[in-house]
Structure formats: C-alpha cells, structure tokens
C-alpha cells in the first residue's frame, strides 16, 4: 500500500504549491482579463461537474438522492449555511428512504 502514500504525497504537494506560489511569488495583481475570468469561473464549473450526476448515485435509491438534491438546491437558494444545506439534504434522504422501505421500493 506504499502506492497510497505516494498518491497522498503528490496530492498534498500539488495542493500546497497551488495555494503557496501565488501568495509568495505574485506580489502584484493579475491584469489579464481572460485569466482572471477563467479563475473566477473555475470553482463553480468544477463543483457543479462533481455534484451532477454523482449525487444521484450517492444514496441507496435514485428517488431519495433526487429529493436530497432538490432539498439542497432549495436551502442553498434560500442562502442557508453550508452545514444546514448539507445536513438538510441528509435528513431528506434519510426520511425518503424510510418511506421507500415502507412502501416496499427499497
């Protein structure tokens, strides 16, 4: 399993460099508008791509996952905190799966 530690090493070194280099090297502001725009959109593109479609397969049933997703969208739209959105989605999945078990679909 030494491979595992190699993965962790690569992961953490790259992650640290990405955080550290701009802070240490770049003392001036980036003026290239395209690069600034690209960097501005990156987190949203990446998080959205990671969430869909993966969230639909993260639970025991597609229906409970879809309801959890809908709940998270609603709470996030209402600008609730990270923890409330995350836990709200979990609770909805939990409740939905109790119902699915009850009606014999799970």
């Amino acid at each position: 399993m030494s491979d595992l530690y190699l993965y962790i090493l690569v992961m953490s070194v790259v992650t640290y460099l990405v955080r550290m280099l701009p802070l240490v090297l770049m003392r001036r502001e980036i003026h290239n508008r395209f690069i600034r725009s690209f960097l501005y959109y990156v987190p949203y593109a990446c998080l959205a791509a990671m969430t869909v479609p993966a969230i639909f397969f993260a639970t025991d049933h597609l229906i409970s996952a879809a309801l959890g997703f809908a709940c998270a969208l609603f709470l996030a739209y209402k600008e609730q905190s990270l923890i409330r959105v995350a836990l709200g989605a979990c609770i909805v999945v939990f409740l939905a799966e109790r119902v699915l078990v009850f009606v014999g679909m799970l």
Binding site: M50, L82, V85, G88
Partner: peptide, 13 residues
C-alpha cells in the same frame, strides 16, 4: 446512505 449526500450538499451551498 443519508450521509452520502453531505459533501454534495456543501458543494451546492
């Protein structure tokens, strides 16, 4: 199963 959506919930938030 329920906790499986927590991380995605945070991304959505």
């Amino acid at each position: 199963s329920a906790l499986g959506v927590a991380l995605y919930g945070m991304f959505i938030a």
